[in-house]
């Protein structure tokens, strides 16, 4: 069995809703509600789900970019939420994140070379020449030319900015990278470039990814294992091959059938889900999916299904599996 790099147990992240004159907490948005999973060294775990399902919040909470509500996050065996601030800061280079929005993730007033290299200064590299060399080397790996060192972010297109974001994460020699929808803001022809870059980097540097996306086809291409989330809960998780060959949860099935296939001759029985995604502030009782589920029955309304292993490392939370 491979080494567990990131171990997440019963993670909860609630955002309080305040109301009334005194701004008291009147409720919680349960963005992440009791989620557990492990990520092994060298693998890439995909996390898919629709907007508001909590996948991005997981990405940020396991890096302690926002505080958790409950649960534990162990990175290389260390509980991130028990580390003192300075020690956490020194751990940061090992775990990096690539953001979705290539525009807001770069400071518009900082030159690209500086943006990529500045963190080195705060982690013990003080010689500007060394920093410059490492920046240029990393830029080259990420497909950026050296003359772009002194340019500002606004001179770059979305795809190039995403390369800058990747270079900035990569220069720290991380072991673990959270990629939070890194391609969804990009054009199709650029998406393929970035996906290929990410998979090359993983191969060359033995990186571990948590790849967050709403696009199942991208996840299938890039990930070894996939978790499917709905309204803050994990509903299904297994190896990519197993999941796509044999999806068990009705939500996973619907999600797969909803993706438009670029082939006009392809005919299929689409499962079109009725209704909208319920608000995570007020999730349905029992199985959260029962309001839209085509096979829901009474038990689904009353009792939350157990998230269990049905063999072959295939975990699923549904009464009917």
């Amino acid at each position: 069995m491979k080494e567990v790099l990131m171990q997440v147990d019963n993670l909860k992240k609630y955002f309080p809703i305040t109301g009334g004159v005194f701004q008291r907490t009147v409720g919680n948005v349960k963005a992440v509600d009791d989620v557990s999973f492990r990520i092994h060294r060298g693998e890439s775990l995909g996390l898919v789900g629709e907007s508001g399902c909590g996948k991005s919040t997981i990405g940020r909470t396991i890096l302690r970019l926002n505080e958790k509500t409950d649960g534990t996050v162990l990175f290389q065996g260390k509980d991130l939420y028990k580390l003192p601030k300075e020690e956490l800061r020194r751990m940061r280079p090992k775990m990096q994140i690539v953001f979705q929005d290539p525009f807001s993730s770069l400071n518009p007033r900082i030159k690209v070379g500086q943006a990529i290299g500045e963190a080195l200064y705060d982690h013990g590299v003080t010689d500007p020449k060394v920093v410059r060399e490492r920046v240029l080397e990393t830029m080259n790996i990420c497909g950026l030319a050296s003359y772009q060192y002194d340019r500002y972010p606004h001179e770059f297109s979305g795809g190039q900015r995403q390369r800058i974001g990747i270079a900035r994460a990569l220069i720290m020699n991380p072991e673990f990278i959270v990629a939070d929808e890194p391609v969804s803001a990009l054009d199709v022809s650029i998406q393929a470039q970035i996906i290929n870059l990410l998979s090359d980097l993983q191969r060359d540097k033995q990186l571990t990814y948590l790849f967050i996306s709403h696009d199942l086809s991208v996840v299938e291409h890039l990930c070894d294992r996939v978790g499917v989330m709905y309204l803050g809960s994990m509903v299904e998780m297994s190896s990519t091959e197993e999941l796509f060959r044999n999806p068990l949860h009705p939500y996973t099935k619907a999600l797969m059938s909803a993706i438009p296939i670029p082939d006009p001759t392809y005919k299929r029985d689409r499962i079109v889900l009725q209704g909208d995604i319920p608000s995570p502030a007020n999730p349905p009782s029992g199985c959260k999916f029962h309001t839209r589920c085509p096979i829901a029955s009474d038990i689904c309304k009353q009792q939350a299904p157990e998230y269990r292993d049905v063999g072959n490392d295939h975990l699923v939370a549904c009464h009917f599996v």
Partner: peptide, 12 residues
């Protein structure tokens, strides 16, 4: 350039 579901390729 677009990955297609259930048609896994080595490289895009």
């Amino acid at each position: 350039a677009k990955p297609i579901i259930n048609q896994k390729q080595e490289r895009l």
